[in-house]
Nucleic acid binder design. Structure first.
Lengths: 146, 146
DNA sequence: CGATCAACGGATATGGATATCCGTTGATCC
DNA sequence: GGATCAACGGATATCCATATCCGTTGATCG
């Protein structure tokens, strides 16, 4: 449904949205339970996409490039593992470029629904959900030394 | 979003729904533009799941086990490449079994929407869509000798 | 029975997503 | 300048979805 990479990216972004100071890859990895090395790659991708900024050296790390209100789930997903819609007939029939057959039209409709939901949902909304729980699965709890 | 395997399975089932007589793996493969060998595996899976039945030997092949009205997209997808929902906290926090954090709750909600859509959509509905196009991307056209 | 047809099942590639490792670059501090 | 910190980038490993191949089983026909 959603790639592991995209899910990791969302965890990281959510984590960053919850911290004002720059966070190192290692810190984010610990706080989100994502393999450090792999997360580093994903973070680099997010930097290249312009969603976050990076700073080397002491006190360096990663920071959100935009306020969480202007950052949607969709932005993050598209940046690291684009959810590509069905635009042309997968059977390769010429002339069926724009109007798909019922099967693929239906499948693409489902994707469109998800895409719309992801577009609407901002990271900010995630953090301020009247839910009682924490933005990530209670990562504050994780941050206690273990 | 949806696995290639599931998409192939849907093509095959759609194809079968459009034919009353048994269809060989080769015929289905030609009509749906799916690699024969791989399709054969998928068909075997569908047989094991009870969605279709098979018959060996001359005039053998595959037939739908249920009328298209009682066969949903969801049935097919679940049979070959189950779209698994987020049921437990992916960070592995104990006590967060039932109520997920906002992030994973949102992701699972999107999946729930897709699942609902797939549950409602029957193969029959796909075939009888007032659309002008054919159930599969005009596979009747494909069936002309080429 | 023998021949043919077609599903069945196991073994084996292949490619991309996932993941690890490490030397290099650049920033900060003293 | 030297030491330390942390991102960067390339090479490599691992796993799984995807895909191919082929001998075996079972059904039909003459």
């Amino acid at each position: 449904m959603i790639s592991q990479t995209a899910e990791y990216a969302l965890r990281a972004v959510t984590y960053l949205a919850d911290h004002t100071a720059a966070q190192t890859a290692e810190a984010i990895a610990k706080g989100t339970k994502v393999p450090v090395g792999y997360l580093a790659k994903i973070l680099q991708g997010l930097v290249r996409s312009g969603l976050i900024t990076s700073q080397r050296g002491l006190y360096g790390g990663f920071v959100l490039a935009r306020p969480p209100k202007e950052l949607s789930i969709h932005d993050v997903v598209q940046a690291v593992a684009p959810l590509l819609r069905i635009e042309r007939c997968p059977l390769g029939i010429a002339g069926h470029g724009t109007n798909l057959c019922p099967l693929h039209r239906s499948l693409d409709n489902a994707m469109a629904t998800v895409e719309q939901a992801f577009r609407r949902l901002t990271i900010h909304a995630l953090l301020n959900q009247a839910h009682g729980s924490h933005p990530l699965c209670s990562f504050p709890h994780l941050e206690t030394p273990n």
